[in-house]
Design a protein around this nucleic acid. Structure first.
Lengths: 341, 341
DNA sequence: GCGCTCAATGAGAACGTTCTCATTGAGCAA
DNA sequence: TTGCTCAATGAGAACGTTCTCATTGAGCGC
């Protein structure tokens, strides 16, 4: 295999120094005469010269590579976030290495090391276990996906979950539902307090009693949704509506309702959260609170680009993007005769 | 920001040459005395030395980075393939940059250039428009996802689509279906001939007449599935079963059937292909031919690793992974009284 | 004519690692 | 004692680009 032409080969052919070749190739057109530029570009074309970004990176300490650490690319929530990150960084000529933490602290730490070793320029991460010390040791800009709580000093972007939960509960309430169950999910990092507290506040604000039987904690899986729904519909006094912490749980809940011959939405209304692809293809299509997944990715990438460019000159930002109620076919007013008190 | 310790700093502290430090750090334990090794590692720990892989890459011309070019990470087929690639390459310490071609030739070409510029070690690609000349110019190992047809000289891995189509059609036939429609999809690169030809052969082998009204070509979208099903169910003589070219089309078809009050599977059976996540969460759950998505990714990465290690010493491979019929709730024998001839 | 300024360009060091060939010292055999 | 072999280690070049400071020549003003 013949060696690829270098900047030195171009310089020789064009009869200039390698510094001048670099100036032309990197677009410093204002300080190189037109005649010299032409000579250089002719040599570049003739030799088929292509810049070697590894060598450039060694010299400049900039790789134009970013790592994106998410829990799992096969989880239906994350591909769109990933796509938002990729599309946005691509416009600034950054390449994105995507890694899967699998909600595992050791894996996550392994990837942080990879970022250091490869001299990546930055990191966008939905953290599992990493803390501020880990991040400080990275010595590159970091943007957090999700809540920035507990991570002072870092930009973050997530959705406005609290008002999203309120929107969902308010919508069910406006349909006439009074016995509303919460399938809360569990966060790996902490109890999922936001959804639960918002639910409690909602009940208090509407003078509704908190019935502990109507709150189920489980993980964010289809099976957890199935199990929770079976539990709820087996109560002596079942709910008329269910708010699930994400669409996957909601779809599991729908499956159990159907298998127990509860009609959706006639007998039981269900709302999810996320609006992953299959919310719209479920039967009936799932009413859900749509998280702006792609936009979260875009915003995270924009925050990172700003940080890369301006460093400490701009304040730390924590962006909350609004969610949107998407009414489909899984919600309706409660059936006549069901308890509305 | 203090400069990170280099191999020269370690060498000075340990009182050895930088070559010896490199030997120790890179595991060449057999040619360095234990006493020297201890001294070096002590200095490494004391200084917190971390290898700079950019510098190593410049010297060795190996980056341990791979590009994976797929059509779109948000298409439900591709995250699992991606995951298979990532998991497999990760065990050999390769990082994976994932890019989205969007079935666009110019984008794809842009990414090929990125691979060259960044001196990536290899490429795994589901090609849109790239041809053998493009690939030859890459000067790195390449593995194709999907059919290797038209790409002599490159390893490829895909699923055995032909026998998968046969399996689907045979299964419908064994249930008693004789009027079986094909929603064929269109390939961006060429007419989707495999599925169609296999369908035609199947009909001939079973002495069934080819009815052109029962073959619909559209793209691989939900909407195409909806439209095709509306067309089929509006025929004076509708089919009793539908084989759709992928799950997304199949789910679109299911939605139309439901909206036209055709029961699935009692009135119309549907089979898809791919077994994406939402095939199992549809209602009724979709019977489908499962493509081994994750395994395709794993195999592609294995082929690439083999090629990276052995170069031309091993023959070009074209791997066909078997698909699997997954019977769920969208198929049943045709209702009594429907035409079976 | 001389001195100054400025644009254009060049020389060489830097970035941090790996590799190759040379050196050194110990051990062994003649 | 001398010469040879081999293991352990070191010196310096290489990889390809970018940056910094020096150089050169042209133009201008006094």
């Amino acid at each position: 295999m013949p060696k690829r032409p270098t900047i030195i080969d171009v310089a020789k052919l064009a009869g200039v120094s390698k510094a001048t070749v670099a100036r032309v190739v990197n677009g410093q057109k204002d300080i190189v005469s037109q005649e010299t530029q032409d000579r250089v570009m002719e040599a570049v074309d003739k030799l088929g010269y292509e810049r070697n970004s590894i060598a450039g990176s060694l010299r400049t300490d900039k790789t134009y590579m970013i790592a994106l650490s998410i829990p799992d690319i096969t989880n239906p929530f994350w591909p769109e976030v990933t796509r938002g990150v990729q599309d946005t960084l691509e416009t600034s000529e950054y390449a994105v290495v995507t890694v899967n933490s699998d909600w595992d602290a050791a894996r996550e730490l392994k990837y942080l090391k990879m970022v250091r070793r490869n001299r990546f320029d930055g990191l966008i991460i939905n953290p599992t276990d990493a803390n501020n010390t880990h991040f400080h040791d990275m010595e590159v800009p970091i943007v957090l996906l999700g809540s920035g709580n507990g991570y002072a000093g870092y930009d973050s972007v997530g959705s406005d979950t609290e008002s999203a939960v309120q929107t969902a509960l308010n919508y069910l309430h406006s349909l006439g539902h009074r016995r509303i169950a919460l399938i809360a999910g569990l966060s790996v990092r902490r109890k999922n307090t936001n959804r639960y507290h918002t639910y409690v506040d909602f009940l208090a604000r509407h003078h509704l009693r908190l019935d502990p039987d109507l709150v189920i904690h489980g993980d964010f899986s289809l099976q957890a949704g199935r199990d929770a729904m079976r539990q709820l519909l087996s109560l002596p006094h079942p709910p008329t509506a269910v708010f699930a912490a994400n669409d996957i749980i909601a779809i599991g809940a729908m499956q159990t309702a159907a298998s127990m011959n509860w009609r959706i939405p006639e007998d039981i209304s269900i709302i999810g959260m996320d609006d992953i692809y299959m919310a719209s293809t479920a039967l009936p299509p799932l009413t859900t609170i749509a998280k702006p997944k792609y936009e979260i990715g875009v915003e995270a990438a924009r925050l990172l680009l700003a940080r890369l460019e301006m460093g400490d000159e701009i304040p730390i930002q924590s962006v909350r993007l609004p969610c949107e109620l998407v009414v489909r076919g899984s919600t309706a007013p409660p059936a006549e005769g069901t308890d509305r008190a």
